[in-house]
Write a protein that binds this DNA or RNA. Structure first.
Lengths: 142, 142
DNA sequence: GTGTGTGCAAAAGGTTTGCAAGAAA
DNA sequence: TTTCTTGCAAACCTTTTGCACACAC
């Protein structure tokens, strides 16, 4: 069974038609050892550089939104001009390198689990995210 | 001593000319009991609704950036299309209500302090932020 | 007077949308 | 053939920028 057919089955199973574009994006995102952090722009560049393909902006946005909705991608909270996504959808935290604008996974052993003692009345907790912003020592942080 | 003259002195002290616009924005932001969370758009609306004034978009952005640079405002990391600011510049965390798109301060007793066991080599930690996303129980989270 | 700040409008950058053409079921 | 998806361009929204005029010192 090829990688493609695995993705084709998965897509069908979650109710998304396995189009050529979606399968390509799956290959790019999920055929990797390490967690992948990316912006839409990163993804478009990778599609053209690594796969020598061209998938339209609208389709890439559509696909990423669909994958996020289905729980295969996680959106990371950063106050950046761009939206960052993560292929690791488990509960985990991040370092954000302000010099390189890169996200780095925080190992679960690097940080104690967050214990909340109170919640907002009538609300359900959807996520708890920790973001540790770092920069080189000589970085002028404005 | 009026509130205005306090702000005028403060502004001068930190090296910002106390213009009419900056003093107005100070009144709006810092003459309040509670922490204030806002987007630029919120601020502009408040200026026109509560103060019956009009300060240009560019000036509001300039002022907010200047205050942030001087440490009087804090930028909050949320994956929203807008940037959120907080008049509470101390280390503290937030609930983000996905229904109302509002930020709520997390009391320091509501959450244990985060203990980091590891850092990225050669980098300095600039901030550690926790964001707890909440929504009403029947909210369809997409 | 000199340097800084303001305001307007234009530009920029990321994201969304409408719609016609194309592909999957 | 019906429904979903793609791709393009235009629209949208927030934020930034350039520049002339005004204000603070």
């Amino acid at each position: 069974m090829t990688n493609n057919s695995i993705f084709i089955n998965k897509l069908r199973k979650i109710g998304l038609r396995p189009t050529k574009q979606r399968v390509k994006i799956c290959e790019l995102l999920f055929l990797r050892e390490k967690t992948f952090h990316f912006t839409i722009n990163d993804l478009i560049k990778k599609i053209s550089n690594e796969m020598k393909e061209k998938i339209s902006l609208a389709t890439v946005y559509n696909t990423v939104h669909a994958f996020k909705k289905k729980g295969y991608l996680k959106e990371i909270a950063i106050n950046s001009d761009k939206t960052y996504y993560d292929t690791n959808t488990s509960v985990h935290h991040h370092f954000y390198d302000e010099d390189t604008r890169e996200l780095i996974d925080c190992d679960e052993n690097d940080i104690d689990s967050i214990i909340l003692k109170k919640n907002i009345t009538g609300k359900k907790i959807n996520s708890v995210e920790v973001l540790i912003k770092v920069a080189s020592d000589n970085h002028n942080q404005n």
